[in-house]
Amino acid sequence: MEAATQDPTTPPETSPGQPALALEGLSRDFGDRVALGPVSAELAAGQTLAVLGRNGAGKSTLLRILAGLLRPSGGEARVLGCRLPGETWRLRGRVGYLGHRPLLYRDLSPRENLVFTARLHKLELAEAERRIGELLAHVGMERRANSRVAELSAGMVQRVDICRCVLNRPELLLLDEPDSHLDQEARELIEPLISATGTRARVLVSHDRERALAAADLMLELG
């Protein structure tokens, strides 16, 4: 592990020059119900893909597939060079997934939750603790870092979940409505944490068409 950088927003250093995403006819159905139609996309490292579409169009399904949480039913998908679903195991720990439900234990504090995630990701603990402190400070949560998550407001939970999502310096960010529950001030705080900088690519699911498109290099309209 190289020395920790002071800036918690620094993205990872990997850049093998391959596309972050390469999807060809990717689809998913639950029994007879089609949850995601055939989707094709190619996203280079450092780019942002905005995923738009009405409710039930499959935006969250697509994100879960890309995170390796859901098997695709058909088509080809390569995420960070790993073929899905066969090589999902190689993808583990390399993506940052922010779902529409926070992945935080309500009875643990933000700090305990992040330390738990760090241990699952086998991060070096002393370095991880420093980074957790920096991240929490960056999103303005250091004062509530030791309260139980259950006691926090929805916006605070979202900020902590964003810290959780970027804690392991993912090469690809999969973000489902990262702005939800956040006011303008908080949005500006989290923006550098989840922007597509350097080689870090991201997939951004949003209802807010204008804002998503303003930040995107590519767009994908599901429907």
Partner: peptide, 10 residues
Amino acid sequence: EGGFDLIRLA
């Protein structure tokens, strides 16, 4: 509380 997802992402 999402623990299944958390563990499967790691």
